[in-house]
């Protein structure tokens, strides 16, 4: 596959788990990024980004701007959070799929792979 997948998660151990799960699915991990600014920097430096697994609440704010950027790139996205998308972010991204924490990293990676497959067809 070789899809480039961004992982944004500020909890290190979860981030590592997700990162490895992405690789298990044959993806190429980007990150993990723990903050919004780190994620945006990774995106601007990356040649391509096909999908992302995103936490919502990060030390420097919510994931809204990263979602905006990913949408412009037509990237497939799954969100993994203990809360929910903030209302204004939800308004801008009505179709983003949200998984409640804790969701197994394998489940998230598979869900994302499925989206990428559907997009490829």
């Amino acid at each position: 596959m070789g899809h480039h997948i961004l992982v944004v998660e500020d909890e290190a151990i979860i981030a590592m788990d997700l990162f490895l799960a992405v690789e298990d699915c044959g993806g190429v991990g980007l990150g993990p990024a723990a903050t919004v600014s780190e994620a945006l920097a990774l995106l601007s430096g990356a040649a391509s980004c096909d999908g992302a697994i995103l936490d919502v609440n990060l030390p420097d704010g919510d994931i809204g701007r990263v979602l905006d950027e990913l949408e412009m790139r037509n990237a497939a996205v799954v969100v993994h959070t203990g809360f929910a998308l903030p209302p204004e972010v939800r308004l801008r991204h009505p179709h983003v799929e949200v998984f409640q924490k804790p969701t197994l990293s394998r489940v998230l990676a598979n869900a994302l792979a499925k989206k990428l497959d559907e997009a490829a067809r």
Binding site: I13, L18, L20, G82, F83
Partner: peptide, 18 residues
């Protein structure tokens, strides 16, 4: 607290996996 518990479980699951 609810959020924290969920987060702790997520971390715990990550720990087990890792």
């Amino acid at each position: 607290l609810h959020h924290r518990v969920k987060n702790l479980f997520a971390i715990a699951i990550g720990m087990v996996n890792m």
